[in-house]
Nucleic acid binder design. Sequence first.
DNA 1: CAGCCGTGCTGAAGCGTTAAAGCATCCAAG
DNA 2: CTTGGATGCTTTAACGCTTCAGCACGGCTG
Lengths: 368, 368
Amino acid sequence: MSVSDPETNSTPTATPTPKSLRRAARRGPATLRDIATVVGISPSAVSMALADHPRIGRETKEAVRAAARELGYVANSAGRALRAGRSTSIAVVVPNTAQHVFGHPYFMHLLVGVTGAANAHDTAVLISTNPVTDHDPVAYDRILRSQAAAGAIIASAAINDPNVNRMVEGGLPVVLIGRYPHLPEAVSVGMDDIAGAAAVTRHLINEHGLRRIGHISGPLEHQTALDRYEGFRAALAESPQPCTHTLAVGDFSEEAGRAGAAQLLDGMAGLEAIFAANDEMAYGALLELRARGLRVPEDVALVGYDDFGVSRLTTPAITTVRVPAEQLGRQAAERLFGLIDGAGEPVTHENVPIELVVRESCGYHPGA
Amino acid sequence: MSVSDPETNSTPTATPTPKSLRRAARRGPATLRDIATVVGISPSAVSMALADHPRIGRETKEAVRAAARELGYVANSAGRALRAGRSTSIAVVVPNTAQHVFGHPYFMHLLVGVTGAANAHDTAVLISTNPVTDHDPVAYDRILRSQAAAGAIIASAAINDPNVNRMVEGGLPVVLIGRYPHLPEAVSVGMDDIAGAAAVTRHLINEHGLRRIGHISGPLEHQTALDRYEGFRAALAESPQPCTHTLAVGDFSEEAGRAGAAQLLDGMAGLEAIFAANDEMAYGALLELRARGLRVPEDVALVGYDDFGVSRLTTPAITTVRVPAEQLGRQAAERLFGLIDGAGEPVTHENVPIELVVRESCGYHPGA
DNA sequence: CAGCCGTGCTGAAGCGTTAAAGCATCCAAG
DNA sequence: CTTGGATGCTTTAACGCTTCAGCACGGCTG
């Protein structure tokens, strides 16, 4: 209070509102300069005070913080980003190759996880999709080149998506969701699809004593589809009893599930169970089974994968493997912040635990 | 050239390649200056050339465009935003009051619509949610104050959400999704829930001859819930035959649907049909009916609202009203760009058409 | 009491962009 | 041969922020 400016300091005789009036005159949000004027110091000092710089006095800091609070000051993100050389946002990219999963609750759960972690880091989340065309001057490419995001999370892409490779090599911090064995350098967060598929298959074999099992896989250029197929075969192979299986390749759509089920039923006599690589296809299979007058689970048992909402609602409800999308999102965001802050972590891939969700479509349980 | 600095001026005798080398040395994306160096003009001229300014020569423009393409130049969004005084992003805000609808495909469809329109305007989409607490220093408030977005789309909020009012009055361009009769000044895009609810109710009355109908509404602090209830009553009132109805208030959750159905069944003898204000509650009602051994639609007809995926999957599939979320998103984004660009449109509310989706749960049709 | 250090701030610079004003150069008209 | 305007670029400045060097001042030591 010693060498205070007589002009800008609060005049105790005035009404308590003149500051806010003055701010209202300068249209738009408060800046550092506004605070500086109110407190009576330079903008740099305000910046340093808010950053808790040791060379700023305690009283000044308190005055600055009070003024900032009163003015509702939030640092202009463009100014800060320009100065810092990087943005305060992260991007979530949904490549066009992932459009078929779009509309699933999966992405919303993912986003909840990502935004939750981002909020904790005071970071905004940009989302970028390419809903329309395939070979556009890819929208997210522009966003990333414009430095609008400090890093990106890429949600579920095909194995051979060239854009993914470009982004990983583009210098920008990138975290992939899923498993990318062909990109050993890339940081990724996924789940153990092999173990999940094995678990649900094992359940069919061990708990229900089924031996003749068909699998409807996803498109085999998706790592997820490959892994679930591999887990399926591994469980069959490790079984003490001899099991036989057959395969239909689908594309994760309900229609493909229906076609796949038809193919399996026609191809293998005495089929006892179907494991579809996702719930959507399991639902398609259910429709086909129903159309043929086959009961689920009495005649043919059925299991799916994902648990994003579909499998809960059908009759019978479908036994499935839960994909913890929210945790996936949160963890991916945390990894991304690690990369951005330059914490030199050597870990490249990380798995989130999956969970077997037993419902009715696999058969009735003694305990139930 | 008179009082020029002898140090920084270009030495014409140097080799012709140091420019590209210099850029290679300057790690990171190309800037206007890089292009300027390559072409041999000033950064401002480059800026003007890219903006197709009439005072820049044709040859220069072509050279600039070529260099920009070669260097992969995309304008730095922070620099541009700082200069322009506003960001090149728009925000999609999901208030905490909307969490119960979160995880629905609705939001993804909305986002597809918004991002599609945004891509067309070369604009990034920020998404902001408050998944955790209720009375936090609201995350999206910070984002908006930080000027990270030029405007915001607010997805489905409660009528009395104070944050919505603050944002509408906050000076930032805002488009609300839904109908907000108490905010006559606010720009909003919604659908005619009254008409939709009336249509599906009329279908029960006219096509199936049902007279004793119960409604399970959403929470009555939601405009959507109010409108659907109103449409329901309007259809009953306009019917030439006398109809009776009863009401149970729910909260859009499956559990509430189940409880609501129980309440309706216990409260009105000879109940012929149930109209749930959304599909999730309709599914809950289906479970309750099934548990009581009542057949749908033979004993009690059932209809829902939304068609976000749930109603297609159940057995029987639920007759519902489709909410065109993607179009909603696209239209909201277009309106927002209109506001941002200052096209002084007087229109404040706009409706997107809804569509009746007839399935099995309302009764079998002669045509089917 | 000169020199030195710690404290607490100011001032300048620059991140990338763009609008506006300024300044050459050239051509046509007076 | 001067004037006046196109034409085509350069310079300057500013947006809001942070870093860094620098300055003033007081107290402490030698």
